[in-house]
Simulated assay, not measured.
Amino acid sequence: MKILSELIKLVDQNPDSIVVMRQQTEQRLPAHQHNKTQLLLVYGGIAYLQTAEKDFYIPSNHYIWIPKNYPHNLMFNTQDLYIVNIYFPEKKAVGFYDELGIYPVSKLLAEMLSFSERWQGDYFKGSWEFEFLITLKGVLSKENLKKFSIQLPTTDDKRLNALIESFRNRLNENLSLAIIARQSGMSVRSLTRLFQTKLHITFVQYLKMLRIIRAMELIKDTDLNMTEIAYEIGYSNIAAFSNNFQQLTNMRPTEFKTK
């Protein structure tokens, strides 16, 4: 694909430069990778980063750190999403910089990004912009922020994918393991084993993450209040919804709405 080859060329043609891109250049491209590490910041909506093993959900005012040579592709379904990509040269990454992770944009990081909001293109060692961006990169590992933990495992098992698709749009229903097993013509034991062997996660854990992802979308895209959103995704108890939301996102639904 021409767009993909041009993107990779722009990022990697100068191995020692830091590249800043503010256009939504990576959306809906096939899986690809870069010789540089990547800081991908998301504002105004939810982006979906797909890898061979998992789908990662990046809400507004969060960033994902992508190690070098890590195959991925980016998806989103809203037009008001704003993305910033910063690509860093990396000879040998360790610790924080060697692991893919999603984190909230702190006040300090937001201020640094605001200061550099007009920057675009390649920046080379010796320039003050380069040194500033290196400092920005160094801030990431020092903040000790909790990872955003919604990561849906994926599988090429057609039977399981069809089963998940059958209840993905029915999250407001009573979707217990026994009910789904009966509807799919399987035993509870067989369905449990299918999730564990193919996705390495329980049905309940998978369903909980699906519901919280849908809640984030409803908070972002509708005027429903929190009680209405809780019922829309299958919670009859607003406290349970709020607790599960915090468990997976490290914030309450009301805080997420404010952000």
Rank of each mutant, 00 (worst) to 15 (best):
K2D: 14
E6A: 15
L7N: 05
K9H: 15
D12W: 01
D12F: 01
D16I: 04
S17E: 09
I18S: 02
V19L: 12
R22W: 04
T25C: 12
E26K: 05
R28Y: 15
P30G: 07
A31T: 13
H34A: 14
N35H: 09
L40M: 10
Y43G: 07
A47M: 08
Q50G: 06
A52L: 14
D55S: 10
D55Q: 12
I58A: 03
P59R: 01
P59E: 06
H62D: 08
W65N: 02
W65I: 04
W65F: 12
I66R: 01
P67L: 10
M75C: 09
F76D: 11
N77H: 08
D80Q: 13
V84A: 10
N85K: 11
N85A: 11
E90G: 03
E90D: 13
K91A: 13
K91M: 14
K92H: 11
G95Q: 11
F96Y: 15
Y97V: 06
L100F: 03
G101S: 11
K107R: 09
L109R: 03
L109S: 07
W119H: 10
G126C: 07
W128V: 12
W128C: 10
E131V: 06
F132L: 14
L133Y: 07
I134V: 08
T135R: 08
T135S: 13
L136A: 06
K142M: 15
L145Q: 14
K146A: 10
F148Q: 05
S149M: 11
S149Y: 01
I150W: 01
P153N: 11
T155R: 04
D157G: 02
A162F: 04
L171A: 03
N172V: 03
E173R: 05
I179N: 05
A181L: 02
S184C: 10
R189G: 06
L194T: 06
F195S: 02
K198E: 14
L199R: 04
I201N: 04
I201L: 13
T202S: 15
V204Q: 13
L207W: 00
L207A: 01
R211S: 00
I213Y: 01
E217S: 11
D221T: 12
T222G: 06
D223L: 15
M226D: 07
T227L: 07
I229Q: 00
Y231G: 06
Y235Q: 03
A239W: 00
N243L: 03
N244F: 00
Q246H: 11
E255M: 12
E255Q: 14
K259M: 15
